[in-house]
Design a protein around this nucleic acid. Sequence first.
DNA 1: TTATGCGGAATTTTT
DNA 2: TTCCGCATAA
Length: 716
Amino acid sequence: MDVSHILDPLNDAQREAVGSPLGAALVLAGAGSGKTRVLVHRIAWLIEVENVSPHSILAVTFTNKAAAEMRGRIETLLGQGVPLWVGTFHGLAHRLLRLHWRDAGLPQAFQILDSEDQMRLLRKVLKSLELDETRWVPREIQWFINAQKDEGHRPKHIKTDDPTRQQMVKIYQAYEEACRRAGVVDFAELLLRAYEIWRDNPGLLEHYRERFRHVLVDEFQDTNAIQYKWLTILASPNGLPFVVGDDDQSIYRWRGARVENLKQYRRDFPKSTLYKLEQNYRSTATILDAANALISHNSGRLGKTLWTAGEAGERIKMYAAFNERDEADFVVNRIRDWVAKGEARRDVAVLYRSNAQSRVFEEAFLNARMPYRVYGGLRFFERAEIKDALAYLRLIASRGDDTSFERVVNYPTRGIGAKTLTLLRDKARASGTSLWLTAEQCVKTELGQKAAEALRNFLLLIERLAAEVQGLELHEQVDHVIQVSGLLDMFKKNRNERGEAQVENLLELVSAARGFTPEGDTEISPLESFLAHAVLESGEGQADPYDDCVQMMTLHSAKGLEFPVVFLTGLEDGLFPHQRSTTELAGLEEERRLCYVGATRAMRQLYISYAEQRRLYGVDTYSQPSRFIAEFPKDLIDEIRPRLRVSRPYHVRPSGTLEESPTPSIRMGCRVRHAKFGDGIVLNFEGNGPQARIQVNFERAGMKWLMLSYANLTVV
DNA sequence: TTATGCGGAATTTTT
DNA sequence: TTCCGCATAA
């Protein structure tokens, strides 16, 4: 058997992992060390060398992009399409639930809620429970519910004496009930149910254990509790899981990811072999040295040091900007120089911690007439007009989908007002059925002439659409629905840019339907398949690779990407690391990993910058350089504009005056003492004269804003 | 039903 | 500053 095409392109460490004997394995793969390559070649190895049937391989990723890339590379390597299951956790869970909807206790045509739909439904639930939304903040409840599901907890499992928590559990329960009535599942529910059907059906579990003996997982450090349970219930006791991850690149703790799963995996599969990929093929030695030094400040690492056979490269350049506009100008000028050398704009990335920072850069790019593209933001299938159209389609597929019902029942307006809807909602909740069924009842009895007429027309419209669409091609169905529902006409009436864009998007939806090929199982209709696709893969928010644009994105969305030139901006304490992450060590360490991820995106040149003064949310804030800057070795950094004034000390006198003064008393970052609150660090201030307010993080009392003139602070 | 204004809050994001 | 949700008015 000639295995050269599998092994030759690999280095020693990669080769060892790829050709490892059948058994559980953990590959710690540093940034830029060929992680995907190892996964892809391992799959090829299993199929071609170990004679494993592709049917018994399950490859799991987190994003659709990663899944698509993996599939593509496998096919290239093997020279043919292979029928193995490759997909995201959610995609695979969805597939299982479609196959076993009865076991899962779901209606056959169940629909999937995206986060926005989930929020809408949750709001309805809160209203029906007559809870005050200022006390029970929907966003927080949503977070609570998802966190519980991510941990694998149903309402009945949550025991608590805390009345607030008890109420949350009640809401969770009511929300679940609302989902059941409507026949919908949210993202977290997909995972939880997929786990539960295995847990509760030994026969089914046995079948899948037999079938998928080879589970390969990418980005293992990003798995949450339920994903881990799902994987391990499948892989125990005889499975051969092959997982790849990097504890230093775990940046999703805040949404339930558990780095500890890497260590837990070692305990749960004690016979697993550990491989480390430390050779980096992306960055210069300078960049790697800096990144290594930075990340070494974290505790409890599994331990890994990136190295390269390549050259040292240029030193890291640091710019201390006067304010955020100065920072943006600096970036623009540097990119100009880069482009003047004949290099491409698309090779440059501007990274920042939070989306709010993008605006200043956009303005600067606009000013400089330099093409740029901002990643993130609304994706195609998340646009309101698209979701409107999809809601009609979803009702056709599943009448019970209350979220969709509410979305379009009076959109375009057809005389079904708040009163009618309130009545419907109350009745539906009382009888435990969907709005659709309730509406069918009410039309006959409960309503006044006019309202009944309007509602009847809506019901007839949907029934009519459902009938007319039968037998049509998918794109014809979509086209028909946007015409007959009146959506298209309604947007056409908006004689402005917005309306034009909406019409264009609806037509684009028709094209998307035309280009859509349902994958795999054909037991659900093309329409249903398309609807699931729209929710689970809300569409690329990606740049057109043919446009030569500077790329702008958050650090989080930069993970997995690489660029010859990277600007790491806004390195200020409070912004990066973000204020809200600095209260506990785990949060701060995650910020540091984020910084590490940012730095390791750079191939040839890394710039870092910060602003001494930044206007954020309409107020000027003055900050200290990020503590991470000091964690990069000094000798790897060139300061571009040696700063004459070290922190441009706007000194704040306790008298309440704000001025530049040579005799500082209170300034950013210094320790102060308050009679009541004790000692703390000055983090921020705003305003002038008697209105001046100062933000202090007290060791005992926490963060406080104080009126400077009353606070009576002394410097410690 | 639709337009306007106020108050409050404001990481990070995929599915 | 900007965005969102809600209440109020037309």
